[in-house]
Design a protein around this nucleic acid. Structure first.
Lengths: 233, 233
DNA sequence: TTAAATTGTCACATTTTTGTCACACGCATG
DNA sequence: CATGCGTGTGACAAAAATGTGACAATTTAA
């Protein structure tokens, strides 16, 4: 999975690149519009992270223009970087075809979560190597591709797309606590979702994978914190 | 852990540096805005302590501007230094992204405690793969991230958010005496809390981590002084 | 199109956490 | 001994967080 980071702020771009590489992505960088377009054509990335405030010559290419240009040629996922407060930019960006946005400042974990959410939503067309075919933990076999789980008693259940996202997020971070906000932005992406929706989703997933949803074995709640998959590890 | 101290008052800055180094941190200093920005880029500190009253040329960079600039580029923790009374500055500072503030004058212990609190809060947010930090003392393992303690007999207990704050404050200052007021303002923040609430909290925490809450081993009371975690050492 | 599956919303039950009150206990002092 | 002070304890109420069921809205498939 190759990712192109476009940002005129080298420090921030470096930080993003570092985070991406640590998370196992290939990452390249462009610091201005011209270089961005060149990289886009030469490197053929699978995803683009684009600073919307990219400065351009008057009337010439800036972040929006790049976004539009690329969107006209491909449906490659685009994630916008923008500073808190420029809500207008976000709306514009999403309208011309960006897939998600991230507010600066952001935490590395947020960044990775968003990227994976976007990749998942846009259908995993990339190399299939990024995700393991099957997640198996404590008797629970989960096949995200088939959206199917096999319980420890052998029964199989089909999951809905959202249930899948949730279980995937939880199992990929098994033993750690994911906050409500982590999960919400992971599952529904920018701005979407609510804690109410998450609670329902958790309920529905539990009813499918837990032997007794009243006393959850896999998905546990840490009051005031969030949810965790097999917190004991 | 590298810390950058930005303050135009050299005497105070020296005192802070001295305190930090004694506590095992690397520390560098900047006495004006320009130097602060240079250090920020060159030294790549992990945390910044910033005097909000930093004088700047009219219309040019002062403490706020630096805070904002840095925050736009990174989510590095920023702690503001401000004199008692300038509550407005605090609000402004926190709004543009500072993580905490310390009122001057402050005790060295307070300073270290705040720094560790901020590090704990903002650190560990990193990749989901990072190991949760653990505090281990005299057979008691405390994982603030999971809000969980493991007793010396292997049993695990989940702590509530407030219980966590209390245990955190106590363990980070193990061997020292924390007064009621120290603990109250640490747990409930300025203005909140009461000694009654603290006594209840201590009771509830003891009932979870002490083998015999009647004869507390970890959390001891020093009549007239406050509480202390393992006062003997 | 209908019907089924999926997702979202609302009202309310249940549980967990936190705060408040009343009182007991030890201890020092007059 | 009585009194006051600081602290520990238990019971209970208030508040917050989470779980649940019913049903509406939406999407999907036939």
């Amino acid at each position: 999975m190759k990712i192109l980071v476009v940002d005129d702020d080298r420090v921030l771009a470096d930080l993003v690149i570092f985070t991406l590489r640590r998370a196992g992505f290939e990452a390249t960088m462009a610091n201005n519009a011209a270089s961005a377009l060149r990289r886009w054509e030469e490197d053929q990335p699978d995803l683009i992270i684009l600073d919307i405030n990219l400065p351009g010559k008057p009337g010439m290419q800036d972040g929006f223009a790049i976004c539009q240009h690329i969107r006209n040629q491909s449906d490659i996922p685009i994630i916008l970087l923008t500073v808190r407060g420029d809500e207008e930019d976000i709306v514009n960006g999403l309208e011309i075809g960006a897939d998600d946005y991230i507010l600066k400042p952001f935490s590395p974990r947020q960044l990775i979560a968003r990227i994976q959410a976007v990749i998942r939503r846009s259908g995993n067309k990339g190399t299939a190597s990024s995700q393991p075919a099957k997640l198996v933990m404590d008797g629970l076999e989960f096949n995200p591709k088939l959206r199917e789980v096999q319980l420890d008693d052998g029964r199989k259940k089909n999951l809905t797309p959202l249930e899948c996202s949730l279980l995937e997020a939880l199992m990929l971070n098994a033993g750690l606590v994911l906050t409500f906000d982590d999960l919400i932005s992971d599952i529904w992406g920018a701005g979407g979702g609510s804690s109410e929706m998450l609670r329902q989703l958790v309920r529905r997933l539990r009813s499918k994978i837990e032997a007794d949803p009243t006393k959850p074995h896999y998905i546990q709640n840490l009051p005031g914190l969030g949810y965790s998959f097999l917190p004991k590890g």
